[in-house]
């Protein structure tokens, strides 16, 4: 099968991992181009800025039509629709109950990037930001997510919304799973831990550094 898209990728980026993980879950082939985000700051190079003036990673270029997408949530939506059309369980966009819930989760996922993601860059690569402020904001997000997932689990649900995992779960999973990289442990968040385990159990799950595989018990 030919590549569905080209991904400009950085191995340590949680946002890039969202795309790699979803591609693995969907068994969707793609082509990856490694970008030296650190230490080379290649995402700010002329070549990359001409592709994405915002200077962020990942960048997706679709094979059919050559669309350039620079927002991770838009990439997840594109992949779900490319895979399963309007009927895809991963993105029930027009379902009156689930559609708005998924949008809620996508926006929450972006907030995780801006808080935990930033705190992690500071803790790991000494990024010149206020690491403590980012960590406090990250902790707030973890508490909010714990509350949401606790409510869901009381109602018998496991995922962010509905009975099937959606792109909302994938938008939230990486930076929550990676939060210990920033010193934000999961010990106090049982609902989050249960949900993390569920995502890691999905067939076709892929790891990244900091997110270990579930070892099969044989």
């Amino acid at each position: 099968m030919s590549a569905a898209f080209t991904l400009y990728d950085y191995v340590l980026s949680g946002n890039c991992y969202k795309i790699r993980l979803f591609a693995s879950l969907l068994a969707m082939p793609y082509q990856s181009v490694a970008i030296d985000f650190y230490p080379g700051y290649e995402h700010r190079s002329e070549r990359m800025l001409s592709l994405n003036p915002a200077g962020t990673l990942p960048v997706m270029v679709t094979s059919a039509g050559g669309q350039v997408l620079t927002e991770t949530n838009a990439m997840l939506a594109w992949m779900a629709l490319h895979d399963g059309g309007a009927q895809t369980p991963w993105f029930p966009a027009v379902d009156p109950a689930l559609g708005p819930q998924v949008q809620q989760g996508l926006a929450f996922g972006a907030g995780l990037t801006d808080s935990i993601g930033l705190a992690r860059l500071h803790a790991m690569l000494d990024w010149p930001v206020d690491g403590e402020a980012a960590k406090r904001a990250g902790l707030k997000h973890l508490r909010a997510l714990e509350l949401h997932l606790t409510d869901r689990q009381i109602d018998g649900g496991l995922w962010w919304a509905g009975a099937h995992p959606t792109i909302a779960d994938l938008a939230c999973f990486p930076y929550v799973a990676l939060s210990p990289d920033a010193g934000l442990e999961h010990d106090g968040f049982p609902a989050i831990r249960r949900w993390l385990y569920a995502v890691r159990s999905l067939p076709g799950f892929a790891t990244m550094p900091g997110i270990h595989p579930l070892h099969e018990l044989r």
């Binding site: 950085y10 191995v11 490694a34 970008i35 030296d36 080379g40 790991m124 550094p209 900091g210 270990h212």
Partner: peptide
């Protein structure tokens, strides 16, 4: 191998260790 791939391979390996070390 392009430079970015070499560095990322090394970073991938080392960051797999980081959470264990901590």
């Amino acid at each position: 191998t392009p430079y970015a791939d070499l560095v990322q391979f090394q970073q991938m390996i080392f960051l797999q260790d980081r959470s264990i070390l901590e």
